[in-house]
Design a protein around this nucleic acid. Structure first.
Lengths: 210, 210
DNA sequence: GTTTGACTTGACCGAACAGTCAATTCAAAG
DNA sequence: CTTTGAATTGACTGTTCGGTCAAGTCAAAC
């Protein structure tokens, strides 16, 4: 029997949207309910608490967006270094898209939420860690494969993957704070130097503007 | 006539402490007042709003901690690349210190606050930008000097400084999310590759533990 | 000794907060 | 037709939120 009501999924998406566009702070139960078009009683029919909804929303976002995107970007059909190229383009495209559609660069909801709730919501933070580690795993395995092919020479792939990921998230958060998608593009050159290999330059349609 | 009351400064420090240890969300006026030992009426005698206190607190933190530390780390008496070495040690020491004293790695209050309030508090975000740009300026001028001395060869120092800064902040935020100071140490090797020069290894007292 | 003004106090406001609950709707299974 | 239970509703609770305000205290300036 398929789900009768779409309220649950609307709540998940309203939570993600609000965390991403505003913050976890702005994601009050009332605000989520209004955005989802769901009454408060129904909220607590589907989720035992606001925290539980947030955790479920992260899983939902991962399953519906992040994982499919990463499976495409890091597809084995692509040479390992080309995956990084695709990853850079993906982040940049999303930042530009954000600014066009929402008037703001929004960065990474996992990372923002993790930073915001790290000292206050252990359950939620555990979920964020789980997802960030999964993300980093894609980077690490691409580095391992590139190493094996002799494309690069990295001593500590796990550590390097962590640094690349931090560079991406750091640039992305700077882009959010400065509301400037170009901050995301900066890390192309940095990434090349970091892994010690040239990544084929992408089609650069210059759209510099602040 | 020197300030008669210490309430103002106690409020500034209570705000910074709360943002850093918890979040801006947790920094309610009541919570700040209680920590500072100040009644709410006095709060609004010194500051016209909570946002105004937060902005003033950032300036206070910069003037009393960040700027003195950076002036030391980036002292002209030190060779440019040695400044980066000192910077890395400084971030790592602070992360370890945090975990020892507060039981948690806390990251950078400017960056956390910026990410949390970017989409909701334009005045506060402007202040965060101003301070982050100042911080990045130290990195950029060290790169310029290292370039001039022939220690390194960097094409776009401003862009590279932005990447280094994002790497630092990204690692630091990962350390906060994972509550693991070692995440900060990771970026030593990454930074060397990023600027294309060996930074003299520091005394490595291995204290690996999670 | 009176005036001044920085500083303090605690009560108060309306709004927003997370969460509860009894009553109700309604489609499908028996 | 009746039963069942998932789904929905809106009123409700007690707390906390940012902010206001009138009434004070008190030390120094005049």
């Amino acid at each position: 029997m398929p789900p009768i009501s779409t309220a649950r999924i609307r709540l998940l998406e309203a939570m993600i949207e609000t965390i991403w566009r505003r913050s976890y702070r702005a994601a009050s139960v009332d605000a989520i309910c209004e955005r989802a078009g769901v009454r408060k009683g129904s909220f607590y029919h589907f989720f035992k608490s606001k925290t539980a909804l947030a955790a479920a929303a992260l899983d939902h976002l991962w399953a519906t967006h992040s994982k499919p995107a990463l499976d495409d970007i890091f597809s084995p059909s692509r040479p390992p270094l080309a995956r990084f190229e695709r990853l850079i383009d993906h982040w940049y495209e999303r930042a530009v898209e954000c600014q066009r559609d929402h008037g703001r660069v929004l960065g990474c909801p996992y990372f923002s939420l993790g930073s915001e709730t790290a000292a206050a919501e252990p359950e939620l933070t555990a979920k964020v860690r789980e997802i960030l580690d999964r993300y980093q795993g894609y980077l690490e395995s691409a580095l391992l494969e590139a190493n094996a092919r002799g494309d690069i020479r990295i001593d500590r792939p796990a550590e390097t993957a962590a640094c690349i990921f931090s560079l991406i998230e750091g640039c992305s958060t700077q882009a959010r704070i400065h509301n400037d998608p170009e901050r995301v593009r900066h890390f192309r050159g940095a990434l090349e130097r970091l892994i010690g290999a040239k990544i084929r330059p992408t089609s650069q349609v210059s759209t510099a503007e602040v």
